[in-house]
């Protein structure tokens, strides 16, 4: 890999997989030579990837390929050791997790991370934290702004829950939801932050085929209603091939292929490294 100089933009090799409608607009995400090493192990190396404003993109690859690590880099849980991350034209390489969230990156987790002691509605309200605001002072003294904004919290939380028809569960403790519902709640909570880019880490894991089918429809619906980009990690090839417009295949931390579903499915290297021994493939 060529040494990358900070601040100097390097042209991204292939834009070809960005859907036509997003071409000519600033990509929502642009990773350039992104990489991280853990004590010599290059968990992600020379990751160059671009996502259009309303694209649904997929990140696939065998276990331990570095997919989750890419998400952790994009959300600044980890600091990259190489490269740049551009979000809608802004360099976010040096930002914190909280700043990145405020700038429009939301995510779910492979191992569900809900606020399990809080109610379903409160989970979404925490997601709305930076969308609806009043001071701690107004909260303690129950000033008019508290009542007004709490009403807004409630209405917006219910609206968001209605995406997955979860309004009835609003008062349930998040930790006691069934597995599939927990995964959906994580998506709702992420959407509550009003993101430009939604990162989903194995959203269909543990779901039955019916639930997965519904999830596929809902991901497309979310993209259409909110006009946002979605990047998802998934082992379920039916889901990935069904809804992803651009797919990126990782193996041992490196991109081995990029392209549309057909291109990926017929790529011999991908078949050898991943699809060949995958259950669904």
């Amino acid at each position: 890999m060529k040494e990358f100089e900070k601040g100097k933009m390097v042209p991204v090799p292939s834009h070809s997989i960005i859907p036509e409608r997003d071409i000519g607009k600033t990509p929502v995400l642009e990773c350039v030579h992104l990489g991280i090493e853990f004590g010599g192990l290059k968990a992600v190396d020379d990751f160059n990837f671009t996502i259009g404003k309303t694209e649904i993109a997929g990140l696939i690859g065998p276990n331990g390929a570095g997919k989750t690590t890419v998400f952790n880099l994009l959300t600044k849980v980890y600091n990259p050791t190489h490269g740049t991350i551009m979000l809608d034209g802004d360099d976010i390489t040096q930002k914190t997790t909280v700043q990145v969230s405020k700038m429009g990156v939301a995510r779910t987790f492979q191992n569900i991370r809900l606020f399990s002691d809080l109610s379903v509605e409160d989970n979404v309200r925490v997601g709305l934290h930076n969308q609806v605001k009043y001071t701690p002072f107004a909260g303690v003294l129950r000033l008019p702004s508290f009542w007004k904004k709490e009403k807004e919290f409630h209405e917006r939380a219910m609206d968001l829950l209605s995406i997955f028809d979860m309004q009835d569960m609003a008062a349930t403790k998040a930790g006691s939801l069934p597995y599939g519902a927990q995964r959906r709640l994580e998506i709702v909570r992420a959407l509550a932050t009003n993101p430009k880019l939604l990162l989903l880490d194995e959203p269909a894991a543990g779901m039955n085929p019916n639930e997965t089918g519904e999830l596929m429809e809902n991901i497309v619906k979310i993209r259409d209603t909110f006009q946002i980009a979605v990047l998802l990690i998934e082992h379920d090839m039916k889901l990935v091939m069904g809804i992803c417009e651009g797919i990126c295949v990782l193996n041992f931390g490196r991109i081995i292929a990029k392209g549309t579903a057909e291109q990926i499915q017929s790529n011999p290297e991908v078949i050898k490294a991943y699809l060949g021994n995958s259950k669904e493939g």
């Binding site: 405020k102 606020f115 930076n130 992420a190």
Partner: peptide
């Protein structure tokens, strides 16, 4: 409360 429950998730929603 969210921070107590799950610090990483709390940070991820800003």
């Amino acid at each position: 409360l969210a921070i107590r429950d799950n610090r990483i998730a709390a940070e991820s929603v800003g």
